[in-house]
Amino acid sequence: MSRLFRDVEGGPLCPQGSVVCIGAFDGLHLGHRALVRHAVARAQALGVPAVAVSFEPLPREFFGKAAPPPRLTLPRAKVEGLLALGVDHVGLLRFNARLAAISAEQFVREVLIARLQACEVWVGPEFRFGKGRAGDIATLQALGVELGYTADEIAPVLLDSERVSSTRIRAALSAGDFANAARLLGRPYAIGGHVIHGQHLGRTLGFPTANLRFGGKVPALSGIYATRVHGVGARAWPSVSSFGTRPTVDGVEPLLEAHLFDFDGDLYGRRIEVEFVAKLRDEEKFPDLPTLVAQMHRDATEARRLLMNEQQRATA
């Protein structure tokens, strides 16, 4: 049975041994997928569990609290994605002051050996770990000789002669280049979550929305978008979405608001996924609600047009 664990402390999880892969896995792009699939294949060959180890918050979020970096994937989506790739256990370790202070050797002894009984460890290119990022693949290999496991890194996954990375995907999303982001991810970029109650202002203005929070994280994109919503019916539902802080109505927390075209139903509490297709414009503050509503109508018309054209190209 698949299992999620959060703590460094605790008893052995894999007494028969394991194959471990480690990474931030933000976005689960083509490079991450290659690493995880390789670890899963090695685990199957050895007849032991495959374990993916990541962190929450991500180390760069912990150390950059004043200006957190953008996130591609929320924790739940990351865990679900890793399990879907075939891992048996996911370690979403709480990255706190204690874990930040653990040396590379301590991490190996306490997590990889005492907790996971690793027999193989796999990482991506340029992997660093431990206090001060002092550990690397050479550290893993040297300790492996002493502790009885092997360690190696997979070759980088290249696209257009450049390594696939979360940084490239964030840049593509920021530029509204969803086609390139999808190539790097291996799938269209989407954000999922449970629909929550908002201020119900959209319904008052004639644009009811399904609202998703972004878990207190900083999103990698903001603005108004042509989108598709999955999880509502048998097909992806065409929609127009706003993702941002809603400056006209003095919003603060980033909120993803999807208006589903020609939809009449209650989505509260349902888990949906909003797929981004094209950016219409940046978020802006309007002088009053009538001006905002007029722009919302223009956005909806443009989103319908873009989605219809894209569908026609796909079926041509």
Score class of each variant (00 low, 15 high):
residue 316 A to P: 10
residue 72 L to N: 06
residue 104 A to Q: 13
residue 314 A to Y: 14
residue 246 R to W: 12
residue 23 G to M: 05
residue 243 F to A: 05
residue 191 I to Q: 05
residue 257 E to T: 13
residue 34 A to R: 13
residue 231 G to W: 03
residue 111 V to E: 05
residue 53 V to T: 09
residue 175 A to K: 00
residue 49 P to D: 01
residue 214 F to R: 03
residue 222 S to Q: 13
residue 309 N to H: 15
residue 245 T to C: 12
residue 27 G to A: 06
residue 284 E to R: 15
residue 217 K to L: 15
residue 287 P to K: 07
residue 311 Q to T: 14
residue 210 A to N: 00
residue 10 G to F: 04
residue 183 R to T: 05
residue 78 K to M: 06
residue 274 V to E: 02
residue 227 T to N: 07
residue 175 A to T: 07
residue 87 V to E: 12
residue 266 D to G: 11
residue 310 E to K: 08
residue 168 R to N: 01
residue 105 E to D: 09
residue 71 R to S: 15
residue 181 A to I: 08
residue 202 G to C: 08
residue 79 V to P: 01
residue 101 A to K: 01
residue 300 A to W: 00
residue 50 A to P: 05
residue 167 T to D: 00
residue 295 Q to N: 10
residue 48 V to W: 01
residue 2 S to R: 15
residue 153 E to Y: 02
residue 285 K to R: 14
residue 25 F to R: 09
residue 183 R to G: 08
residue 234 A to I: 09
residue 223 G to Y: 01
residue 25 F to V: 11
residue 250 D to S: 14
residue 20 V to R: 11
residue 53 V to E: 07
residue 138 A to M: 10
residue 123 V to H: 04
residue 7 D to K: 11
residue 55 F to D: 00
residue 18 S to M: 12
residue 309 N to L: 15
residue 61 E to D: 15
residue 73 T to M: 15
residue 251 G to S: 03
residue 227 T to K: 06
residue 101 A to H: 03
residue 152 D to R: 15
residue 155 A to G: 06
residue 232 V to F: 02
residue 214 F to L: 12
residue 115 R to S: 08
residue 262 D to I: 07
residue 49 P to I: 08
residue 185 L to H: 09
residue 155 A to E: 13
residue 285 K to I: 03
residue 165 S to C: 03
residue 119 C to Q: 13
residue 26 D to K: 10
residue 78 K to W: 01
residue 132 G to W: 08
residue 173 L to W: 02
residue 254 P to V: 11
residue 2 S to G: 05
residue 101 A to S: 14
residue 189 Y to K: 05
residue 64 G to P: 00
residue 103 S to I: 09
residue 234 A to C: 06
residue 269 G to M: 11
residue 169 I to A: 08
residue 230 H to G: 04
residue 290 P to R: 01
residue 271 R to P: 06
residue 3 R to Y: 13
residue 156 P to A: 09
residue 52 A to E: 00
residue 27 G to E: 07
residue 259 H to P: 01
residue 70 P to W: 02
residue 284 E to M: 11
residue 190 A to W: 03
residue 272 I to Y: 04
residue 223 G to K: 07
residue 202 G to T: 10
residue 78 K to Q: 12
residue 225 Y to A: 12
residue 107 F to P: 03
residue 91 G to M: 12
residue 202 G to S: 04
residue 272 I to M: 06
residue 165 S to T: 10
residue 256 L to P: 04
residue 304 R to C: 03
residue 232 V to A: 07
residue 257 E to M: 04
residue 230 H to W: 08
residue 150 T to P: 06
residue 64 G to V: 04
residue 19 V to C: 07
residue 85 L to F: 02
residue 22 I to R: 11
residue 204 T to H: 08
residue 290 P to S: 11
residue 24 A to C: 11
residue 209 T to K: 09
residue 34 A to T: 12
residue 176 G to T: 08
residue 281 R to P: 00
residue 39 A to R: 03
residue 132 G to M: 02
residue 274 V to M: 11
residue 106 Q to A: 15
residue 66 A to T: 10
residue 144 G to Y: 02
residue 26 D to C: 07
residue 313 R to G: 01
residue 245 T to W: 03
residue 91 G to C: 05
residue 40 V to I: 08
residue 54 S to W: 04
